[in-house]
Amino acid sequence: MTRKRRRLYAVLAGLVMLGIAAALVLTALRDSVVFFYSPSDLAGKPLAAGQRIRIGGLVAAGSVAKSPDGVATRFTVTDMKADIPVSYSGILPDLFREGQGVVVEGRLEPGGAFQASEVLAKHDENYMPPEVADALKRAGRWKHADEQPAK
């Protein structure tokens, strides 16, 4: 075996080891790598009282309402399998609307309601002009049933 050969194998072996190590670490740390849980993830998860978590899902159609005191916004985050009612007082991001993806951060209250301290909007990977989005909807070829285009 020439020295070049040996160095080639050493580098390749090193990279393979490194890849395995990284995969193991990331699998072990899975829970801290995920940015949010879905409402149905949460159903099977024992949570300490008052633990801060993030939940991600869609804002359920027709669920957004101002609470009677006029400060908090209430809405439901859904992943089509489970729902979580959320209450939030603060400025909502511009993309926030019914049918839109959101990530809410806060605490689960004893009653099962979620008190959010931060609301982030999540958008999907589709980019198109507004007219195209409208045309797709008119033609009934819109994949995202309850999503509304921006004004």
Partner: peptide
Amino acid sequence: PMWGAWWVWDA
């Protein structure tokens, strides 16, 4: 402007 945060610690 879109998400509502300058930075998040996602993956």
